[in-house]
Each structure stands twice: as C-alpha cells, then as structure tokens.
C-alpha cells in the first residue's frame, strides 16, 4: 500500500546484545522515478495542491514515521 517505502531484513547475529529490529525500511520518494517531468500530468485542485505542497499527485510523497511504516507490514504493493 505504500509504494514509496522499501523494506529490508538486516543481518541478525545470535550474539546481538539487544532484541533485534528484524525489519527496517527506507523511503524511495517519487522524484527518483520521474527523470524529466512529463507535461500534462494530472493535477490536484488548487486547494488540495496548497495542502499537499505540490500541484501533482505524481510528486506527492506522504511520510509515514519510522516505526509505523514497518508495522503496517507492507514494503511495496
């Protein structure tokens, strides 16, 4: 459900002192995939654009805080 996060499963040693965090995640924000922005992308309404910080849904990058996004259990869907 969150196509902008990726998860990975870091190595966990049997000798680690603390309970392991088995899933870690990071963001891959949309600008990494657009290259040169094509013309005529769908747009938010002006009011939505003001709220989102961008005119284009394709550039919108919601941020789910670290810890919450892993618990959603989704890397990419």
């Amino acid at each position: 459900m969150d196509s902008q996060t990726r998860v990975y499963f870091p190595y966990v040693s049997p000798h680690d002192p603390c309970p392991p965090i088995r899933v870690k995640s990071y963001y891959v924000p949309p600008q990494l995939f657009i290259g040169f922005q094509p013309e005529n992308l769908p747009q938010f309404s002006p009011m939505e654009a003001l709220m989102h910080g961008t005119l284009w849904p394709a550039l919108y990058s919601p941020y789910v805080p670290t810890g919450q996004r892993e618990r959603r259990g989704e890397g990419h869907s």
Partner: peptide, 15 residues
C-alpha cells in the same frame, strides 16, 4: 546502488 534500492523488494512479507 540507487537503482538496486529503488527496485521492489520484499512484497508481502510475514513478520
């Protein structure tokens, strides 16, 4: 390396 990290990884994992 950036391209590798952009790739889809681990869909539907069971935790």
């Amino acid at each position: 390396a950036v391209e590798i990290l952009k790739e889809e990884q681990g869909r539907k994992k069971f935790f």
